[in-house]
Every structure is written in C-alpha cells, then in structure tokens.
Design a protein around this nucleic acid. Structure first.
Lengths: 342, 342
DNA sequence: AGGTCACGAGCAAACCTTTTCCTAGACGGT
DNA sequence: ACCGTCTAGGAAAAGGTTTGCTCGTGACCT
C-alpha cells in the first residue's frame, strides 16, 4: 500500500482523495461524501473509504478545499503597537477560542505604521481571510480600518473603533474603578487618593472619573481634593506618593491607575516609614504579575481579564462570519485580585 | 465595467483572471503570462492586460495559486511556553523578516502541552505550510518535533533542538557573560560576585561558567569564592545581596543572571546604605526595559538581541525552503547596554 | 410478472490560476 | 514567390476537492 511508487498511481508525496477512492474501489465523489458525512450511503462502503483513508494516511488538501469553498479557515490578527504587555493576553485568548473552531491565526504587526497596516490588510484580503481582529493597546478609540473588503468582518479588541457601527470588545474601566474603590471602602478606608497616568489617555480619565463618582456616592472626595495625573511609571508613583504625604498626610489608601505607579507608591511609602497596608493601603491596576508580585508587599490590583477580551472578540468574529454580526461596543468585566497591599 | 451584474460574466464579488482577460480581449493564459512576466509578448498586449487589472481591481486568488504551486507562502510559528517576554521579540523579528519575503506567519501556541503541539503540527501540515519556526523560552535543548512531514523545514529559535542535525538559532551566553565581566574589569572592578538563577537552568550554568572562566583569565575568582545560584526573582536578588555583603563585604561589583535579580540586588544595596555604582556596580542580563529602566539607578545590562535571533531564524528558514538548509546551532552575539549602575 | 419508487453511487462541473504545448501568422531570405 | 523560422497568443490540462444531478439497480407492491 505505502510503497514508494506503485505501478500506475504512485502515492509519492501525499495521498490524494483519488488514491483513497481507488483503494476503496469507489469514485472520488463517493469518497468525498463518505468523509463529509453528507448524502446517504451503505455503511460498508463508507467503512471501506475510511479504511483506505487510514491506510494511506490521507489528509485533505486544504488549498483545494479553500479554493472550492472560498473560505480559508484563517483570520488575521493585527496588532497595532507591537506585541506587548496588553496585546499578548488578548492575542492568546483569541488564538485559543479560534483554534477550537478549527481556525488559525495569521499574525500581523503594524508597529503603529499606517503604511504597514495597509500592506498587511491587502495581504490578508488576498489570502481571503474569513475575518480580522484588530488588537490595540490603549483604550482610546481608533479610526476604523480603511480599504478593507466590506465582506470581511472585523472586530476591534481593546481599542474600540471610532465608528459605532463596528463591533468592538473593550475593558470595563468603570467597573474596574468601582471594584477598587468599593474594596477600599469595604476595608474601612475613607481618605483615598488616586494617582494615575496622563490625562490625555482615556483610560486614565475614565478610571479617575468613575473612582471619583464612586467616592462621591459614599459621600467622600479624593484625598487632597483632586486626582493626581502624571505618567504610567514607577518614578511618577514615587513622586506622587511624596506629594500625597505632604499635602494630605492623613491619607489611608492610594488607588493607582496601573501597577507600575502602585509599585512606585508602595516603594516611596515604605522608604518614608509608612507601613503598607497598616498605615496606607495601595491598590494597583492591570495585575501585571511581574509588577504586582514583585512589589513589597504584593499588590492588590484590578485584573482586566485581557485573555477574556481576546476570547470574546474571537467569538464575536466567529458569529459575524457564520451569522449576523452584533455591532456596538461590548465590555468585559474586571476582577479584583486581593493580595497583601490592602 | 464595474456594474453589479453584466450580461454574461457578472463581476459580482471579486474579479477573476477570466474577467481581466475578457476585458483585455485576450485569453486567460495570455493574461496570466502578462502578469507573471514569463513568455514573450507584445508590449501593448501586456499593457492592455495591466490596464484591465487596474480597471477591475483584480487580485489573484491565492488559494488557486497555492493549489497549483503546492506552496502556501505561509510558515508556522510555534511558541512552546505561551508568548512571553522572551518569545515576543523573537516572534516579531521573525514576522518582520518573513513579511519582507511575502510570507505570512501562522501563530500557534502550545502552552507547553505535547497534545496541543501535535494538534498544531497536524494543522500546519494540513495547511501545507512552507516551514516551521519553533520558538522556546529557555536555552535548554528541547526534543525535536515528532511526526512532522520531513519535507517541511524546521528551525528552532532560542531553545535548540536536541538533535544536532536540526537547524537552531540561539543566544550567545558565553559572549554575554564575557561582555559583562570585561566591562566590569575595564571599569576597575576586581571583587566581582555572580548572582543568578537556578542551577538546573542551562542559561544560569552557562553564564556562570563563562563568567568564572573570564575572571580566571584575569587571575581573579568570584567574590566569596563561589557563584550564587537561586531563582530568577527580585526577592532572591535581595537575599543574595545581603549574603554577599555579609560573606564578602569588600565586593565591588555584582554581575546578575537577569535583570530581576539585578534590580533586587540594587534595591537591597541601596537599602543597606551602599551607593550604586559608587561603592558597588551592578550589571544585569536581558535588557528587559521595564526592569532595567525602572531600576534605581537604571541598569547596565546584556541585551540578547532577541529580535535578531528571530530574524536570523526566519532567514535560515527561508534558506531551507528555497535552497539547502544549513544544519547546526547558530549563535547570535549579545550587546552590552551601559547605563548608570556601573 | 411488471411497474414504480427509493437509495446508493458515479459523473461532471465549478472553484481559479499556471504552464506547457501547439497553431497560425508574419517576416525574411533565397 | 515559396519555404523556413520565429514569435505571439490560444487551447487545454493539471492541481484536488465538493456537490448537484443523473443513472442504475434492487426491492416491494400490485
């Protein structure tokens, strides 16, 4: 059977369906039906075909299948700012969900370059991908993809499309801020400062606004009466902690816009002789393990469930491919990870 | 021309080569030749075809091309331990180099699971990928892929294959250790400690062995007379720094096996009142920006040029696809990034 | 015993491009 | 003017699978 070259139909290389059919003594079409379950046929005929498939190690040629069906069983995954801390979990979540549906992922990194984006887009269109996921980094809306075949569904993850008619999956910054504030309130803190990133980042603005709102709902206002906007860095966290100690010395908790800031805050507080969480609790945002776990003490922080965002984006894409898309912005809830800093 | 449905050949959906040929008044075969440059033909005929391509926005159907040529212009990129700090730059480097060759990357993450690896491998084989890159995380050799079609070339990146007949691209741990030690010697340090990860990691063993060898070549031995093996964590760095100060108080430099350890060492030294680099220099390994730049002071560290490893792996793969593979282990040199900690 | 119905299996077209082989025409040389 | 050669372009097959349609056979009912 598996000799290197048979007399007339040499199965050198991979076996074709024709080889299977010949071995089973049926026509090619019948062999195909036996494999795909369609049509009715005698069980023993089907079994003969399956035996032949087994004997020859036949695997269908996906190029031929794709040519026939027009589907590639492939989606493009475009990351717009390199592949970093934020896009990686999204990417893995998407890959996981798509792999279950027998769909593979074509990776395209634009490095934030519009030319490169166009180039990848043309490539994906030429490959007749079944869909595209665009994974951003920031939560600010991004302009929708231009020049893509409207027949190819697109889902935006993390950075929503500026066009509300598109489908986007984003994190729930409101819920995240609420989780953090309510946790601090529940553990008895009342003089809570908020230190976060640059005000021109929507994530910083949203988290700050909702944190303040939730404090107000409890009849409180942020320590020192204002939000501390700055950078997403440890250095800013350290400077801000000093500022908070100076201007609002009775502060008993700091909610930080990300884990780097939180770590900087925790470091500075410790170096100023404050006990975390004894004197002041610290809560971060991102659950970036290398920061949250290496912090002294390990950080309580908000996890955005990035992998879940990727998974949901993939499911939305599958839905848009097979059925009707569900446009609009879908938010994925956050989760509070409590550790020793609060 | 671009009406939704012409009388007999409605160019609904995408234009086919037949549409182009019809518009240009030539046969399909001639249109193909005009596009691919092969065969001789009158310049004005070729131009007519190109004009038709332009008018219809024709793009060749890659499924048909792949079916014909047997090539998919696609390579599989398998990451074996999730996509993390180490594999991401490799992955991007590879994607970049392959994209230049009109080849796209199929992403497969095995999560370190052999079952998943087999599953992905079968999928890639079914898709007739032109080649596979296996990107590991640790530098310890890994068992070669099993059950892959021997006609598909494979290149291992970062984790070499245990089979020397395979092609692998790895980092130069010897050179990295030499860069660090020679830098410290050149800046006048002579009592150099080495703090690194677990001894069962080949990276830790290699860097330690070569560091010790280079010290010996200068007539020195490591401070405290031995290498400090431990974990790849900041906590271990802090503990080890204390141990070094206790057992070898005159130490004037610490070369660390990674940046996390280095940061822990720097933190502990500062907290013990030592000045870095005034009293003691600290050198890290990995050039992991979030660690190296956030460290106080910013870390001098060894950069493994991971993106270059990915790039070279991709080039080796392209070579193996188009021509003869060049088996064996290829090492990519490191680069020392000098900052303020030394 | 003959006719009809149903089920099993095969044929062929369609998916689209590339490439080889072949034909017809033109031009040049004798 | 005729023959040979060269070239441009067309026809057709190959690459492999899916699927609708058709055909044939067997069984059952009248």
């Amino acid at each position: 059977m598996l000799v290197t070259s048979a007399p007339d139909s040499p199965p050198v290389g991979r076996a074709r369906l024709a080889d299977v059919a010949a071995l089973a003594g049926v026509s090619v079409g019948t062999a195909s039906k036996a494999l795909n379950g369609a049509g009715r046929m005698r069980p023993e005929t089907r079994q003969r075909v399956l035996d032949a498939v087994e004997a020859l190690g036949f695997r269908p040629n996906q190029h031929a299948q794709s040519l026939h069906s027009g589907r590639s069983w492939t989606v493009g995954l475009m990351t717009t700012d390199g592949i970093g801390r934020f896009s990686t979990p999204v990417l893995l979540g998407a890959e996981d969900a798509l792999g279950a549906g027998k769909i593979s992922v074509l990776l395209c990194d634009t490095r934030g370059d519009a030319i490169r984006e166009q180039h990848h887009l043309r490539n994906l269109t030429d490959r007749r991908v079944d869909g595209v996921i665009v994974a951003g980094r920031r939560t600010d809306p991004r302009p929708p993809l231009t020049g893509i075949d409207p027949a190819i569904p697109v889902v935006y993850a993390l950075s929503p499309s500026a066009d509300p008619a598109d489908t986007s999956v984003v994190t729930d910054d409101r819920g995240g801020a609420r989780l953090a504030v309510e946790h601090l309130l529940a553990t008895g803190r009342t003089r809570i400062a908020h230190v976060t990133g640059p005000e021109h980042h929507q994530a910083a603005r949203d988290r700050a606004r909702h944190a303040v709102e939730h404090l107000a709902a409890a009849g409180l206002e942020p320590a020192a009466g204002r939000v501390h906007f700055g950078e997403w860095s440890e250095a800013w966290g350290r400077r801000a902690a000093d500022a908070v100690l100076r201007t609002a010395p009775r502060t008993d908790a700091v909610f930080c816009g990300n884990d780097q800031i939180a770590r900087g805050v925790a470091d500075a507080l410790r170096e100023r002789g404050k006990d975390v969480p004894g004197d002041i609790a610290v809560v971060g945002y991102d659950n970036w393990d290398t920061m949250a776990l290496a912090c002294r003490p390990p950080l309580t922080t908000v996890d955005m469930n990035l992998a879940e965002i990727g998974r949901i984006a993939a499911l939305r894409l599958l839905q848009a491919i097979d059925a009707e898309p569900e446009p609009g912005v879908h938010t994925v809830p956050c989760r509070l990870v409590v550790r020793e800093s609060s």
